[in-house]
């Protein structure tokens, strides 16, 4: 499925993919019906897809269209894959509250089950990047933190800052902080390229390397204050601010006391 994902943005491909998807679902059904167990599974899945469709019609279709074909204000979701839905809805970015600004991370509107249903429904429309399985996300066991750090500085730090605190882009857009983000969402962001973010293909940054990046982010997130208060980890600006306020303020305070005549 992932190998197909590179075609998902071809304009011409969308209808083709839709047909393929229908075919695929049809095939699954015919194969599934061969054995009773699998058929039960498939039925359950179709129930989930159906639930997702209902949720979609209620919460998403006003912008993204009744068949997720997109509209004037929102892109088509055909072929964006389950990973994209899980990232956008699972981090609360979708549904958007305010169209004028960049979609922000906030408390998700939908429960995890509902997110899964929405993802299943959108994935059923056309193939796209799937939600990575746990084997890709076990950063506590696998991956190299040092290699992840090097990859992060090469591929991520220019937008998300050296410590993953986020940064400004053009015209008021911004790269959000990556601190406190679920590993699965970090992974999904890299393979789907949400909002301004580009896609990081599995061939140029392998799944193992992506896991290392997550490992480094989690290590930076858990890193205690080694030298005292971190001052936001945004570099010399806050350091300068501190020295011009608290720093020189304390010294001038003592100086005033020093020069005051004792009573």
């Amino acid at each position: 499925m992932k190998r197909l994902s590179r075609y998902r943005r071809h304009r011409a491909a969308a209808p083709m993919l839709l047909i393929m998807a229908l075919l695929a679902i049809g095939t699954t059904f015919s194969v599934a019906s061969a054995t009773p167990n699998k058929s039960a599974l498939a039925l359950a899945r179709s129930a989930v897809i159906e639930e997702g469709k209902q949720l979609f019609l209620k919460g998403c279709s006003s912008c993204h269209g009744l068949n997720a074909e997109g509209g004037a204000v929102a892109p088509s979701l055909i072929g964006v894959g389950a990973a994209s839905v899980d990232f956008q809805v699972g981090t609360g970015r979708m549904p958007m509250a305010d169209m004028s600004t960049q979609a922000m991370r906030k408390k998700p509107v939908y429960t995890p089950e509902q997110v899964a249903a929405l993802a299943a429904y959108v994935a059923s429309l056309a193939p796209g990047p799937a939600i990575p399985g746990d084997e890709y996300l076990n950063y506590e066991r696998d991956g190299s933190v040092a290699e992840g750090g090097e990859l992060f500085r090469n591929n991520c730090a220019m937008c998300h800052n050296f410590a993953g605190q986020g940064g400004a882009l053009t015209q008021g857009k911004y790269a959000p902080t990556v601190m406190g983000v679920e590993p699965v969402h970090i992974y999904e962001a890299m393979i789907t390229g949400p909002q301004s973010m580009p896609v990081f293909s599995d061939k140029t940054i392998t799944p193992e390397e992506k896991l290392s990046i997550i490992k480094w982010i989690k290590s930076a997130e858990a890193e205690p204050a080694l030298g005292g208060a971190s001052l936001g980890r945004v570099g010399p600006v806050t350091e300068g601010l501190l020295i011009w306020t608290l720093g020189i303020g304390m010294l001038i305070g003592v100086a005033v006391w020093l020069a005051m005549k004792a009573r």
Partner: peptide, 26 residues
């Protein structure tokens, strides 16, 4: 009490890398 220039987070220099918000001291 306050960290300054946490060089271990910046990583070693290479000309191909950059961090958002790269500033000099004030």
């Amino acid at each position: 009490v306050a960290s300054i220039n946490p060089i271990w987070l910046y990583g070693p220099y290479t000309p191909g890398q950059i961090s958002a918000g790269s500033q000099p001291d004030w």
